[in-house]
Amino acid sequence: MKMETDNYKVSESITLEKKKTLEYIEDAEKKLKKVRKKIADLQNTMYAEGKYSALICLQGMDTAGKDSLIREVFKQFNVRGVEVHSFKVPTELELKHDFLWRHYIALPAKGKVGVFNRTHYENVLVTRVHPEYVFSENIPTVKSLEDLNDAFYHDRMERINNFEKHLAENGTIILKFFLHLSKAEQKNRLLRRLNIPEKNWKFSAGDLKERKLWDKYQFCYEDAINKTSTSHAPWYIIPADDKPTARYIVAKTILDEFEKYDFKEPTLDEKHLDKINEFKDELNNE
């Protein structure tokens, strides 16, 4: 049976706890190899055409598999065709600008694919779970925690919608993926980091502190997804408990969307086309 990637798209209000976190697709790794080659070929054409860019946004709880997904899905891309940005705690310079500035300057140029590993949505997720972080932005209207209410974050979501609408109207294909991990599987992955010495470096005590806030994060994700999944910048909820399946679904979704655009390589102008045989003869007769 053909997999319909639209089944993962958020086109109406959702409840996260009702969405599955586990799905197995037979031969997912084998299928991924074929799909990622097709995506890379399409990106080469997109690069040559120079009309569109693509922004791939990845969000998910710790250990959801964002890093390995990027490695496996985009490994056959020409290095000049893909740019990956991982957004950490804002720098001093970034905090001197509005919350979208650092994301805007990292956007892909026309012809390129940009991957945001954690995204502008951190500003309505992490900062909503930890509202005290917003104080470092030094916003004149924010004087106390009481100012950081639902209205504050919903206003930010609307600004994100406007930001993405502007990008889409200027030729950016936007696809947003939430890697939906179960709490039980996160526990398994954290234990694996502790049990395997080569994986110890990935573990942080902060992971356990954030895990205690699981329900709050789920609420914030659900609210953000429901308020910011649009026709021009849709969210896809990807079952993430099985990594090969999650990678394949993301790759197939990107392929399906790219194929809708019918990218075309530019052709030589008539002046040069008329002389193409002369150019060949000149090279062959050197």
Rank of each mutant, 00 (worst) to 15 (best):
G111I: 02
L208V: 15
A251Q: 05
D147L: 04
K75P: 02
T141E: 15
R193C: 06
E198L: 10
R193S: 05
N161I: 00
L22G: 02
F263A: 10
S68P: 02
P266F: 01
S229N: 07
I160V: 03
I225F: 10
K202F: 04
P131G: 13
I39H: 08
K18S: 15
K260E: 09
A184N: 02
A224P: 10
A251F: 06
L100H: 06
I39Q: 03
S11P: 05
V35D: 01
E72M: 12
F135P: 03
H120G: 04
K176N: 08
F99N: 01
V113L: 12
H180Y: 01
S68Q: 05
F279H: 04
N44H: 02
E72C: 12
S86T: 15
I14C: 13
T5A: 10
D27I: 12
G111V: 08
D281N: 13
A233E: 04
N170P: 01
S136Y: 01
G81C: 01
I196E: 15
L95C: 13
L69A: 15
P266K: 06
K275H: 14
F219V: 15
F99R: 05
E185F: 10
E122P: 05
L58H: 06
L100M: 11
K176Y: 04
E146R: 07
H130F: 03
K183E: 06
R80N: 11
Q43A: 13
L69E: 03
R102A: 07
I25K: 05
T267W: 06
N188K: 09
I254F: 02
K75Q: 07
S11E: 14
V89P: 01
K216E: 10
G65Q: 03
F74R: 00
G171T: 10
N117P: 14
V84H: 08
T127D: 03
V129S: 11
R189Q: 15
T141V: 12
E92Y: 07
W101H: 03
D215Y: 02
L42C: 13
L194R: 10
G114P: 07
V250I: 15
V73S: 02
N138V: 08
A40I: 08
H130N: 06
Y47L: 06
A151F: 10
V10E: 04
F152Q: 08
N78E: 01
F77D: 13
E282P: 00
E12W: 03
E257S: 13
I238R: 02
A106E: 00
N138I: 03
E222C: 09
F116N: 00
E29R: 13
A64P: 01
R156H: 02
R192Y: 08
D269K: 05
A251E: 04
G60V: 08
H272A: 12
I276E: 11
E12Q: 14
L190W: 02
E259Y: 05
F116G: 00
F219E: 15
A106R: 06
M61C: 04
R36P: 01
K9E: 00
A205T: 11
H85A: 11
Y104N: 14
K20M: 10
Y8H: 07
A233L: 05
F135W: 03
K187E: 11
K88Y: 09
I39A: 12
K216Q: 12
L273V: 12
E265K: 14
P90S: 13
D41A: 08
E259P: 12
L179K: 13
K75D: 11
E185A: 12
V82T: 09
S68F: 08
E265Q: 14
C220Y: 14
R128F: 03
L69G: 08
H130E: 04
H180M: 03
